[in-house]
Design a protein around this nucleic acid. Structure first.
Lengths: 214, 214
DNA sequence: TATGTTTGGATAGTGCTCCTATCCGAGAAG
DNA sequence: CTTCTCGGATAGGAGCACTATCCAAACATA
């Protein structure tokens, strides 16, 4: 199919597709001559993936390129590829290391991992972006004067562990490695809005149960 | 305190504070004379809240203004205020109603609410932004050809219900209404990065347990 | 009192991201 | 042979979150 059809079937403007091609989010089509290129179903699928990541997952274009680079890199093992793809996903800004709240949040996060017995995650505290995000967010909370026991955080963490098990179970239903990596990335990027929406719906439901609509 | 001190104690540049004042994210200080205004601890707290929402929660400035308008509006009852503040939070883009995937996602979401017995949430399907977000995200998944049973979605939903209970329990520990609303907003905006981080850490932990580091 | 510094308000500009509009000459379609 | 459409290149635009500059009033210091 040609660019116009790719545009029609995906609902993405041709100018935007050209932009994605330039940015390396889509591989170039098979060049037929100087003014015609041929695209296939794989391009359509990739385009839909890119669109979903950008529009639903709110992932920046530059980050999508990084993530896809890992998804497509079949020189690495599954675990590394998967980790690399997920670690490229956007995170909160870097913490200022000399901040007292950040240092306290650091201690609290380590305590949390001990409490949970997440020994593997403990090994990653110096490098995992997810760990740094956790520290920044906890520090922001503390800075606002909110106080809670680590047990509350641990309760949330246990629920997220259950979520992660569902995530991995779903990934395992896909046979090929490439599919696994793509599913894992999507299962993280696209289920985040789903979880957020479900959480807010659940808050509304639970709030109505407790207090009515008044 | 004066603007310079507010800046020093919050770590936010004076030019940025002036910007927030212009945008109505911070109430103006007590005007002493034409060139001096006095700020208090409440301003500092509000500034930190704004910063946390923008930097950690990635909430757009215009949305922060909307949310704060509801937080400050004491003419309404708690439930309405809380709902209004949360509904002002950012969502995924509007769905195109005439899309087959969107219609299917709609049906699936309603089926999900029935399955869960979330009868209160069911009443809100036409108006709740969270419900619309859910539909858009589910439709995006389906459009990519992914298939799952509604039971998987229901499992995620039950976990989010547990999360929501923790959220509301935490809010209840705060006595005043104003505090409750502020806590609820923060507990939604700031715990989202925390949950996301915990989920990714849990994925790393669980992945290492299942497959090792290889 | 003289003088340099600081204050808050107004306004314009910056850097970034994600597109979008226009132009162009080579091919395809009728 | 004319007209349309193609893909590539480039420039432009809209939105966002600041940021830099200017200004006159007021304060601080000597």
């Amino acid at each position: 199919m040609r660019l116009a059809e790719l545009s029609r079937r995906s609902g993405v403007a041709t100018a935007t597709i050209k932009y994605y091609l330039r940015e390396g989010l889509l591989p170039p089509g098979r060049q037929i001559n100087t003014t015609t290129a041929e695209y296939d179903e794989e391009h359509l699928r990739r385009l839909r993936l890119v669109r979903a990541m950008i529009q639903v997952g709110r992932v920046p274009v530059a980050t999508v390129r990084e993530v896809l680079r890992h998804v497509d890199d079949d020189s690495l093992g599954l675990t590394v590829r998967l980790g690399a793809a997920l670690w490229a996903l956007p995170q909160v800004p870097e913490p200022e290391e000399d901040d007292a709240f950040v240092r306290a949040a650091h201690r609290e996060a380590e305590e949390l991992l001990d409490l949970l017995g997440w020994s593997n995650a403990k090994l990653l505290t110096t490098i995992s972006p997810a760990y740094r995000s956790l520290v920044v967010a906890v520090a922001a909370f503390r800075r606002l004067g909110y106080d809670w026991e680590t047990e509350l955080l641990a309760s949330y963490a246990r629920l997220m562990h259950e979520t992660a098990k569902l995530d991995l179970d779903f990934v395992e239903t896909h046979p090929s490695e490439a599919e696994k990596v793509e599913t894992a990335v999507l299962g993280t990027v696209l289920t985040e809005p789903i979880l957020r929406a479900l959480r807010r719906l659940a808050q509304e439901e639970e709030s109505a149960r407790r207090y009515g609509f008044e």
